[in-house]
Design a protein around this nucleic acid. Structure first.
Length: 285
DNA sequence: AGCCAGGCCCTCC
DNA sequence: GGAGGGCCTGGC
């Protein structure tokens, strides 16, 4: 099935920029698990072609457009966040990179697993959790599994999770699963809540601090003003805005500063700062 | 070999 | 309130 859309999209950068961890490129397609099924998708200029393992493409189309945030007006967003030569350059380099609107539960576990880790390892952790506790799916001879629900993971011991290589994150994943399963937090309610309310609620989960919490609100709770500050964002802001940022500004104060500076689409600014700064390192190495 | 990776938590000041 | 150390594990 073909999806027509207007505006810029760089599907590849959007799927593989470290927002989501279950996409795999194979044979000119990108295979991922969304809405409880395997989806394969590819881009050709201004249309997208996709198929699902369930065969219900008509039902999937609006969900997929939402996942890719195709209704975000990138031209307007770029205009708002173009503050500084480096971010403008990064916007040109990664033009069409969109924030994804993911399933909150899987997103939450993915970023709990991201602490002191790296993208290949996070991907492996998430895939291993699915392969061990998820339901089987098949498409084009590829075998994948759904990401298990909170109820399922709540019944898994910390020791079992540790065996998957989660390390010290295992206890956090377990605690999060229990909190969601017991209804201490309702992620779908948070989707309708304000950014402040959602973040305040998320950081009550052990293993979720300000950075991880902001990843979850940005990538799955529709809060584009989110601004996760990690080491790369820290470097980018200090190096690229030295006149504006006090040397002694701590990370916790850096977030509100950036949200004020970049405005309601600070989350988009964050993505372009992040990738711009990482690219700079790669090029000088 | 040792250090770091898209942090968080706890302790101590 | 904020700096510093510890934490699982894999990769370079």
């Amino acid at each position: 099935m073909i999806i027509k859309f207007s505006g810029r999209l760089n599907l590849n950068e959007s799927l593989y920029s470290g927002q989501a961890f279950r996409w795999r490129a194979y044979d000119s397609w990108n295979y991922g698990i969304l809405f409880g099924q395997i989806i394969k998708i590819r881009q050709r200029d201004n249309d997208l072609e996709f198929y699902s393992s369930s065969g219900c493409e008509e039902e999937i189309e609006p969900l997929l457009k939402r996942y890719l945030r195709l209704d975000d007006n990138l031209e307007k967003i770029y205009e708002e966040i173009s503050k500084g030569v480096q971010i403008i350059s990064s916007i040109q380099n990664y033009s069409g990179l969109r924030i994804l609107d993911q399933e909150p539960w899987e997103c939450m576990i993915s970023f709990i697993c991201s602490a002191n880790s790296n993208i290949p390892r996070i991907s492996k952790n998430i895939e291993d959790i699915a392969n061990t506790f998820g339901e089987p799916l098949e498409m084009d001879g590829q075998l994948r599994r759904t990401f298990p629900s909170a109820d399922v993971l709540a019944d898994v011991s910390i020791e079992e999770l540790r065996k998957l290589g989660l390390g010290f994150r295992a206890k956090y994943v377990s605690a999060a699963a229990n909190m969601i399963s017991e209804g201490a937090i309702d992620l779908y309610t948070l989707k309708e809540s304000s950014y402040d309310e959602a973040l305040e609620s998320l950081v009550t989960v052990p293993g979720i601090g300000d950075k991880v919490g902001n990843c979850i609100t940005l990538f799955s709770l529709n809060k584009l003003e989110s601004f996760p500050v990690d080491v790369w964002i820290d470097r980018a802001l200090r190096e690229w805005y030295p006149k504006l940022i006090d040397k002694n500004l701590t990370r916790s104060k850096m977030r509100p500063w950036a949200q004020e500076f970049f405005g309601e689409y600070a989350g988009y600014a964050n993505q372009y700062l992040f990738h711009g700064r990482r690219l700079q390192d790669k090029n000088t190495k």
